[in-house]
Write a protein that binds this DNA or RNA. Structure first.
Length: 462
DNA sequence: TGGGGTTAT
DNA sequence: ATAACCC
């Protein structure tokens, strides 16, 4: 039996369950003395998100095998389709071959997915404000504080406490271990999150509960659709050993796994055992230490609240775009969508960027970009709808384009993208008598560079 | 292979 | 401005 101090007292552990000696603390979580308690992190991952949104939008698609298509790629599909052998990121041709009855919807316009995605994040923020987005369909939530609060409310003789959902490895729970107790409470909160997502938004998904982001994400994927799993400290090594290749480790991507393979490192165990000195020679101190810590399941990166987006972009890919006129037309389309989004957001972008991908024979999709400050006289007009900024903005973007591409030479693009970034809140202008003279944004002279000291924007004449 | 996003250098 | 990472 574990016991809890009555609420009102400082910390929740009673004398009968003294603070754990170091041997009880997970060896790999050992940090300088006096450090904070281990965190409780939940990773929430919606099931085949785009397909779920499409089924909510059009309920007739439910119980049919459904795929979401972008160009020639099937980006995701529902579980009906997966039963029939369809996989994520299949080509459309392979998918139709596998499953001729597959129903396809076009998912190139992300508007509805983006809106639902932010509803999910906002719902999770009701539990704890510390929510970090990862893509449109995953969120990390730091629920340490919420867990501590619940522990203080718990009855000291409460034996009914149990995990919600799966416990990784079917590990037995030790109700005398405060670390177990905290994670069990975390699993109950995760269950409440999933229930809220289902009842209020109609969405299903997985959750993983653990003491850091890496482990929460890995353990959340163990039981797959619409289930949750909690990782207790004793099973951490088993979880990371279950990875068949280091590339499955979040944070180790395509490039890094290739460089590691060149050193003979392909498994988690290889990376754990590898000489830190030699690893440091290859990757530098910061990266090598982070990589090796990941291999032990260690991850001290905080859950960083995402807040509103730092950029908006719209892109389009195609087989061919090779004339100035085509480019201008595509840019105008991308810009029109972006301006709608800017008007909804309320903030104003101060920088615009154009990104292209050239059709190069054997190069992997390498992108080039040019950016510039948006002229200050245009910024207040963005997204207001009363003055049309389209023409001046298209002109700016075409100048960026000609800065990248010599239009006197033949060219062949396969992608165009426009990005608004450096978003700033529109300064509410409360007028005191002196404000007119003191507020920079009301001044008629502009101060180039003042708000973008770190940016080396390409100069575009008006 | 799409249409997004982020951070580090 | 690019390159890496994530989905």
């Amino acid at each position: 039996m574990f016991t809890i101090k009555p609420k009102g007292e400082k910390n929740s552990i009673c004398k009968t369950a003294p603070p754990p000696p170091f041997s009880l603390v997970d060896p790999l979580e050992v940090v300088p003395t006096g450090s904070a308690l281990p965190r409780v992190i939940v990773h929430v991952d919606l099931d085949c998100f785009y397909a779920q949104v499409e089924m909510i939008l059009n309920p007739e698609l439910k119980d049919k095998p459904l795929g979401v298509q972008q160009k020639s790629l099937l980006v995701t599909c529902n579980y009906e389709a997966r039963k029939l052998g369809v996989k994520k990121l299949m080509s459309i041709r392979d998918a139709k071959e596998k499953c001729p009855q597959l129903v396809l919807v076009n998912g190139e316009d992300l508007t509805q997915y983006r809106e639902m995605s932010y509803k999910v994040t906002e719902l999770l923020e009701e539990f704890s404000p510390i929510v970090e987005r990862l893509g449109f369909d995953e969120n990390f939530v730091d629920i340490t504080e919420m867990v501590e609060k619940r522990l203080q409310q718990l009855q000291s003789d409460d034996r009914s406490l149990s995990a919600s959902g799966h416990v990784y490895n079917d590990q037995s729970v030790n109700l005398h271990d405060i670390l177990h107790i905290r994670l069990l409470v975390g699993s109950q909160i995760a269950a409440e999150m999933r229930e809220a997502l289902c009842s209020r938004l109609g969405l299903t998904g997985c959750a993983g509960v653990a003491s850091n982001k890496l482990l929460a994400k890995l353990v959340g994927g163990v039981f797959k659709p619409n289930q949750q799993t909690v990782l207790l400290p004793e099973s951490r090594q088993d979880l990371i050993n279950s990875l068949k290749h280091i590339k499955e480790m979040p944070g180790i991507g395509y490039k890094t796994s290739k460089r590691l393979a060149a050193l003979g490192i392909t498994s988690v165990h290889d990376l754990q055992m590898f000489s830190p000195k030699i690893l440091e020679k290859e990757f530098g101190m910061a990266v090598s230490q982070r990589l090796q810590k990941l291999s032990f399941g260690k991850d001290d990166s905080p859950v960083t609240p995402s807040g509103p987006p730092q950029s908006f972009s719209e892109e389009d890919s195609f087989k061919k775009c090779s004339s100035d006129g085509e480019v201008k037309k595509k840019i105008a389309e991308l810009l029109a969508s972006l301006l709608k989004r800017v008007s909804q957001d309320g903030r104003k972008p101060h920088t615009v960027r154009l990104i292209i991908r050239r059709c190069s024979s054997e190069q992997h999709s390498s992108r080039e970009s040019r950016q510039c400050a948006i002229p200050s006289h245009l910024i207040p007009k963005l997204g207001t709808g009363n003055y049309d900024v389209t023409t001046p903005m298209v002109d700016i973007l075409m100048k960026l384009f000609r800065n990248m591409v010599n239009v006197k030479m033949p060219f062949h693009l396969t992608l165009l993208s426009v990005c608004f970034c450096n978003l700033k809140a529109t300064t509410p202008v409360k007028k005191g008598p002196l404000d007119y003279y003191l507020t920079p944004s009301l001044s008629t002279t502009s101060h180039p560079g003042k708000h973008s000291l770190k940016m080396k924007d390409t100069h575009v004449e008006d």
